[in-house]
């Protein structure tokens, strides 16, 4: 496992938990609705080539829930502050699901500190006539099962019994996700108007069997971000970095390499 550290840094008045490991060009990983969790195999794989920074968003994990956090706009300005305060430059930004939406919200505001974007099954837009899955109506088991094609992975996830502290964090993450994404459900109607402002190389990764945001979302997004590449990954659900880690890493490396 790559050397990594865990620290808490005050950013915009929010005590922010940050995992950091590896060396090389800077990479900022923006986690999804489930939170950053502990240092994981996919982080190890990213840290092999990059100086990987994985904050827990405000309202998630061990980070504070600041009073100012109401919406994705607040969160994106927070991350502009974070990149400035940590002096992250030429940053390869990788975002999964909610984190992918966040990456786009940050990038339409400013790509000054961003070198490339990788969006793994990101939320953020709505595609007319393509029904999404509703993680707020699914029970916890259905939520896990519908996130993976490989049900052995789902079984393993479901078999793990969380500690009380882990269960509290999972609930906190779910609450903050609702605050950010309940209405409109996982998108910002204004975002698509400004996606043309993204002027850095962008890789879009999508699981061919994503039950939350089906593949047509990937195709729609490719049309909205100038020059973006879309890779649809076979036999893969919503959590690409977990279910198809090799393809995920290959996608990140391809765009980050092209941008460097």
């Amino acid at each position: 496992m790559a050397d990594h550290k865990s620290e808490t840094i005050d950013i915009s008045g929010c005590k922010t938990a940050i995992l950091r490991g590896g060396s090389g060009p800077t990479m900022l990983f923006l986690h999804g609705a489930g939170g950053a969790g502990a240092w994981s195999p996919y982080m190890d794989a990213l840290a092999a080539n990059f100086d990987l920074v994985v904050p827990s968003h405000p309202g998630f994990g061990m980070s504070d829930t600041p009073d100012w956090l109401d919406n994705m706009s607040d969160l994106s300005f927070f991350y502009l502050d974070l990149m400035k305060q940590l002096d992250l430059t030429d940053t390869h930004v990788v975002g999964n699901s909610l984190g992918g939406w966040l990456a786009m919200e940050i990038a339409v505001r400013s790509t000054q500190r961003i070198k490339s974007l990788t969006l793994a099954s990101p939320a953020g837009i709505h595609v007319q006539g393509v029904p999404k899955g509703d993680i707020f109506l699914w029970d916890p088991e259905t939520r896990v099962r519908n996130s993976f094609v490989n049900q052995t992975m789902a079984d393993a996830r479901l078999a793990a019994v969380p500690t009380d502290a882990e269960a509290d964090i999972a609930l906190k993450n779910h609450f903050t996700t609702a605050k950010l994404a309940w209405q409109p459900r996982f998108y910002n109607p204004d975002l698509r108007k400004w996606l043309h402002r993204i002027d850095v190389p962008t890789m879009i990764l999508w699981g061919d069997s994503d039950k939350i945001f089906p593949v047509p979302y990937g195709h729609a997004l490719k049309e909205l971000i100038p020059g973006a590449e879309l890779r649809v990954i076979a036999d893969c659900g919503h959590l690409i970095h977990q279910e198809k880690t090799d393809e995920f890493i290959a996608g990140v490396n391809a765009i980050a390499g092209a941008a460097s």
Binding site: D139, H174, F175, W182
Partner: peptide, 8 residues
């Protein structure tokens, strides 16, 4: 439960 108790 997911109907009755939405998060938040």
């Amino acid at each position: 439960m997911e109907y009755k108790m939405p998060p938040g």
